[in-house]
Design a protein around this nucleic acid. Structure first.
Lengths: 137, 137
DNA sequence: AAAATTTGTTTGCGCATGCATATAATATTT
DNA sequence: AAATATTATATGCATGCGCAAACAAATTTT
């Protein structure tokens, strides 16, 4: 395998990914004053059984350090228009906290999903999606 | 197209990309005390005609703001073991500067390329590379 | 059961980033 | 050619990040 081809594949993947990511991030900032990390966090909460997850379980999902995630939760608690999530102490183990998605947060993530979905729809063809799936097999 | 499928494709792409990126960044930090952005900058310089490029031409390549790139150059000038690049005033337009890859930088980027190439080789199959290429068509 | 270790979260700190602004050089207008 | 606008880079500042340390609660060791 040619070195250049290898690097070029990587560079192209990065550019492709970054272009999509920045566009999504921009849309979220513009319309919700929130970023893609905030979206991920709320997305996983919204799709969880009880609209809540332990902080440490969110770490691998959102791909942030514990400390960054802790502060992210604080930001969402202090969202301008009212808290989107809430810290709840986890009864079985008082060290843990559950991050719970409040009603306002549910509404917000629903709107965010629609915006991002439109965006992805316009950017990703069915063929793109098939290709992405193949990447991970 | 199902919404979930769309998001999942995106989430998987992100995770795939981030995993590769973090591993590469870690290797570079460990062995060279430099990150992936430093690598990109030097990579483009090394593959340029005269081992130098104007700062503003590097901006779209490295995907950083002008200010971040300016500071990145400063860091590479002040690299612990000796400067890897050098600012050169561009004769035709004294506002511009060329970022020039010094001998030490050439040697360094060459080693970095080998390390990353090994890494990519072990992570990306020929099939992966074909898939990435398809993404961009 | 007291002491030591481990686990989950938060906080202090330094660093890289982007935005807005400053500064310098060039190009355009009048 | 003097005044104004534009272009290229650098700097001040606020923000989000990861690492390491602090802290609190639970578990294990002795």
């Amino acid at each position: 395998m040619n070195n250049n081809e290898l690097f070029n594949a990587w560079l192209n993947l990065t550019k492709y990914h970054d272009r999509l990511l920045k566009a999504m991030d921009y849309k979220l900032q513009e319309q919700f004053q929130l970023g893609i990390k905030e979206f991920y966090l709320m997305y996983y909460l919204a799709h969880s059984e009880q609209k809540k997850m332990k902080l440490s379980d969110l770490v691998p999902k959102v791909s942030l350090s514990h400390s960054a995630l802790s502060r992210l939760v604080t930001r969402l608690e202090q969202y301008r228009g009212g808290s989107l999530v809430e810290r709840q102490t986890y009864a079985n183990d008082k060290r843990s906290i559950d991050v719970f998605l409040l009603k306002k947060g549910e509404h917000c993530i629903h709107e965010m999903e629609m915006v991002l979905n439109d965006h992805l729809q316009s950017r990703l063809s069915d063929k793109d999606i098939q290709n992405i799936k193949r990447l991970l097999e």
